[in-house]
């Protein structure tokens, strides 16, 4: 029993040391919808703002602009 407790404590300590030295940092991407208009007329295609850059679905936007 005492040996198990020592082992658990050692593992916990190791985890603290390892993750303390090498913290796992997770940065959540900011993923905001961006609406689009063509000369003021709303488009159905939506973009996404990710870390300061807007991305658009190429095929969907291409089709919509092509038919606009």
């Amino acid at each position: 029993m005492v040996r198990r407790l020592y082992r658990a404590a050692a593992l916990a300590l190791a985890a603290v040391v390892v993750f303390g030295l090498f913290p796992v940092v997770t940065v959540a991407a900011v993923n905001e919808p961006v609406s689009m208009t063509l000369q003021g007329t709303p488009l159905t295609t939506k973009g996404e703002l990710i870390d300061g850059t807007t991305f658009v679905p190429l095929k969907e936007l291409g089709v919509e602009l092509g038919s606009a």
Partner: peptide, 16 residues
């Protein structure tokens, strides 16, 4: 660019 829901997402300003 990256693939999302079978769509290629491309940087809007650069592409357009």
């Amino acid at each position: 660019p990256f693939l999302e829901n079978d769509q290629f997402m491309v940087p809007a300003r650069f592409c357009l």
